[in-house]
Simulated assay, not measured.
Amino acid sequence: MRILSIVIAVAMATVLAGCSSKFKTYNGPEVTQVIVQKGERRIHMMHHGRVLKTYPIRLGFAPVGDKQVEGDGKTPEGLYFIDRRNPNSNFHLSLGISYPNEQDIAEALAMGRSPGGDIFIHGGPRKGSSADGRTDWTWGCIALTDRQIERVYAMVKDGTPIYIMP
């Protein structure tokens, strides 16, 4: 009888572990800034100048240079803010970046174009998609693995500054 109880307990623990949520909790120091280094393909979660965590990233298909117009495949550069979160993203989870700002809009309009929008930090592509396995595929967004975006989603609050560097 004791062996049966142990087997049942192990089976229940295994089932519960398989039901883990994509919504993680974070109890560490506050993330006061996010820094993206496009050239190094890294994102850093910062607490007052101290790196809490660093992750490798994937970028748009044209990663060099600042985003100027819709469809250019580039990731914007400059100071923005995390302004929304999407728990039902097509890319597992996503955090919105406040692109375009007033300057971005003015620059695009001066070229007679739209600046675009919907720039996010998000999880990976769906298995079997055309982006699966490609290095730069995000159309201007910043991509992490699904496991990494779960952690970042828990760590970063809306309103957190994000500085995207070349």
Score class of each variant (00 low, 15 high):
13 A>P: 05
14 T>D: 01
18 G>P: 00
20 S>H: 11
21 S>K: 03
23 F>G: 06
25 T>M: 01
28 G>E: 00
28 G>N: 06
29 P>Q: 02
31 V>L: 01
32 T>G: 04
33 Q>F: 00
34 V>R: 11
35 I>F: 01
35 I>Y: 03
35 I>Q: 04
35 I>A: 02
36 V>H: 04
36 V>C: 05
37 Q>E: 10
38 K>L: 10
41 R>F: 00
41 R>Y: 03
44 H>V: 00
45 M>N: 02
47 H>S: 12
49 G>Y: 07
49 G>A: 08
50 R>L: 08
50 R>M: 08
50 R>D: 08
51 V>S: 13
51 V>K: 12
51 V>E: 14
53 K>Y: 11
54 T>W: 06
54 T>C: 09
59 L>M: 02
63 P>Q: 03
63 P>W: 05
63 P>D: 10
64 V>R: 15
67 K>F: 03
69 V>S: 07
69 V>L: 09
70 E>C: 07
71 G>I: 13
71 G>C: 10
72 D>H: 07
73 G>R: 14
75 T>C: 12
76 P>Q: 14
76 P>W: 08
78 G>T: 05
80 Y>S: 04
82 I>Y: 03
84 R>H: 11
86 N>Q: 12
88 N>K: 10
89 S>T: 09
90 N>W: 03
90 N>S: 11
97 I>A: 10
97 I>P: 06
100 P>Q: 11
103 Q>M: 10
104 D>Y: 13
107 E>D: 15
107 E>G: 01
110 A>R: 15
111 M>Q: 15
117 G>N: 06
117 G>M: 05
117 G>K: 04
118 D>Q: 10
121 I>E: 01
123 G>F: 02
123 G>V: 01
124 G>W: 05
124 G>R: 00
124 G>M: 01
125 P>C: 02
126 R>G: 03
126 R>N: 03
131 A>K: 04
133 G>F: 00
136 D>L: 02
136 D>M: 00
138 T>H: 10
138 T>F: 07
139 W>N: 13
142 I>C: 05
143 A>P: 10
143 A>M: 11
144 L>G: 08
144 L>M: 11
145 T>H: 06
148 Q>G: 02
152 V>T: 09
152 V>W: 11
